[in-house]
Design a protein around this nucleic acid. Structure first.
Lengths: 365, 365
DNA sequence: ATGAAAGCGCTAACAC
DNA sequence: GTGTTAGCGCTTTCAT
């Protein structure tokens, strides 16, 4: 009863008493077929439970009808939103999406790119981890590559869609300074491999560069507002859990006089909140906290956290559009910059003179 | 310089002065090739920047080397973890993963399944939304289908990997009852389409059935512990934001005497926390809250939320293994059940006699 | 050990 | 409008 192998276009043609080209026309929508024939073909196809093979079509057309998407980690809320955006756009364009996670490992990323090229995907969207992957080759073999959320300084010709991180940090700093804060701690993400906890050099490291953008925006805005900058208020940590926690704890204990902390990412923000709680600091009475990335828990936190929302979903959506629709317009005028939004909640308050006595001392690792 | 079209096996064969079969042998690892020839082939391939086409191979082999993964929503933390698990396993097996989100819409899911079948994926893993999709056909054309996290009652023959939700809820109820609670509200997820806020019927609705499992476990455990069950403490809500909030608010206002709330999912838990805050109820002094799904914010919450952790990542990993490796062992002895873990934090306290006066009155929509 | 040749399922000229 | 035919890039007998 059930056919051992799924029916092919040839089977359908035979069953409908037509040529295979006609069947192809019916299913690919190309050319013209009389209503009667079309009906017969459709009936035969239904009867045989025929499913056109994307493999055959792909081979002929030299494209698979799918795109590749590489993110650092699908469980990161920002990445997840980005993925959702790509999925939404790809769906409207009838393409499927091969997703993979590079976990910040350039070698792994290079492998993924290779696989994607072998699959002959119609394009690749990546939140790039590094320059090991042969991005140019990928852009050549696949029709194209678009970067999302991050760019690689050495590959300026690859089009990109980014959040306006500088603008986001600027609005946060302006907000904090407007509240009266002067000694603001900056928890920044260090590039992979950098010594954790060390103050950054202020220059862009090879990968990402986005951390550099945020730190520079922090410095620039402070300068612009004529707030003196203290180097040891700027801390760079690998944003992994423990390192981030250590960095935040170090900052808050070393400088008991900081009145506000700006975390340059949600993992760093999480660390800041946990450290403040561990040190028994009241937020915002003893210290104000704000962060980049408006993830779900920001609202659930007590007090709810003020954050800069970055349009992750839109970034994904636009990147996909850029890749598949606006091929022509691509890469002109530098990266596409999407606006961020400052979401004010309760975690930042006006400046108080000093921390309550006894607070801010280590009490908990 | 750059070839207009990427090199094919034929080009490499010509360049290396060998037949295409030899090149194929070199790249597919099949058959035997002399070391010298292999070297020449590899050199030629490198020279031409040759990438074997998965399309050609797939057509011949009648499999694409990829699997499909359908989840309700990639931005849901549980789903994201599940996806990560599938990705991890697929990677070890050298398969790529086509991911898509059905958003709880059976029609959309059916479309996705169709696309996946057209792609001739080697198998499909799904957190199923409904029975519209032709799962049996998919299982036939693709080699197989495995359900994750949910099963479809009408398709018992499809293998599945699930969390032991019943056990999780049971441990939560036992914990709460052990703390002295007797009037425990249950916030359950209603099947899509059911009237929100209405008490459920206690029977499995067509889709998912997982909500049914949790509610039944709630009832059963209470009965087993000889705690009287009050029907109007059981509320079913669509777990979407507003509906969940409304359901939680309804429960807490209608029954000012509930001393604990068990939310059957993280969205419902979020609603419970927000409502408690809105009603100015102290947690756990006025009301204890616990939920199923140990998502990131549970720890960031104040107080941190007690929750049942479900092994989302493992579910994904096992489902993928089952699909690709343990084909033989599949579907024997019913679904694979993975254990949950009760993570006790600060959101549940011992029973107090009554809510503080004035609390629990509506004060905030 | 290696090459020639026959498809895998489909689309796109090109004939009629 | 519809059928015929020639590949798309690869794997795989089957010879050699």
């Amino acid at each position: 009863m059930t056919p051992a192998r799924s029916a092919t276009i040839k089977d359908v043609a035979a069953a409908a008493g037509v040529g295979i080209a006609t069947v192809s026309r019916v299913f690919s929508g190309t050319g013209s077929v009389s209503a009667a024939t079309r009906e017969r073909v459709l009936a035969a196809a239904r009867e045989l439970d025929y499913r056109p093979s994307a493999l055959g079509r792909g081979l002929k057309l030299r494209r698979s009808g799918g795109i590749g998407l590489i993110v650092p980690d699908v469980t990161d809320p920002f990445c997840a939103d980005l993925v959702a955006g790509v999925l939404a756009c790809a769906r409207t364009l009838g393409e499927h999406v091969i997703v993979d996670a590079a976990h910040g490992d350039p070698a792994r990323e290079a492998e993924i790119v290779d696989r994607l090229v072998e699959q002959r995907v119609d394009g690749v969207i990546a939140v790039p981890a590094g320059e090991d992957a042969d991005w140019r080759a990928a852009a050549r073999v696949c029709s194209s590559v678009v970067f999302a959320d991050r760019v690689l300084p050495r590959l300026p010709e690859i089009p990109a869609v980014l959040a306006d991180d500088a603008g986001g940090v600027r609005s946060l700093v302006e907000y904090l300074v407007g509240l009266g804060h002067r000694r603001i701690g900056f928890l920044g993400a260090a590039p992979p491999g950098a010594p954790s906890g060390a103050a950054s050099t202020g220059r862009d490291g090879p990968p990402g560069a986005s951390w550099g953008v945020r730190e520079r925006a922090f410095r620039d805005t402070l300068a612009q507002l004529r707030v003196p900058l203290e180097e040891d208020l700027i801390v760079a940590a690998r944003s992994a859990g423990d390192a981030a926690y250590a960095a935040a704890a170090g900052l808050l204990q070393r400088r008991a006089d900081v009145t506000a902390v700006l975390a340059a990412g949600h993992l760093l923000g999480e660390a800041a909140v946990l450290v403040a709680r561990g040190l028994d600091l009241r937020v915002p009475a003893d210290v104000s906290i704000a962060m980049v990335d408006d993830v779900a828990w920001a609202e659930l936190c007590d007090p709810p956290l003020t954050a800069v929302a970055r349009p992750a979903r839109d970034i994904g959506y636009r990147a996909c559009e850029l890749l598949l629709r606006d091929r022509a317009r691509r890469g002109r005028g530098g990266p596409v910059l999407l606006p961020t939004e400052l979401v004010v909640r309760g975690s930042c308050g006006p400046l108080r003179t000093a921390r309550a006595p006894g607070r801010g001392t280590a009490r908990h690792a």
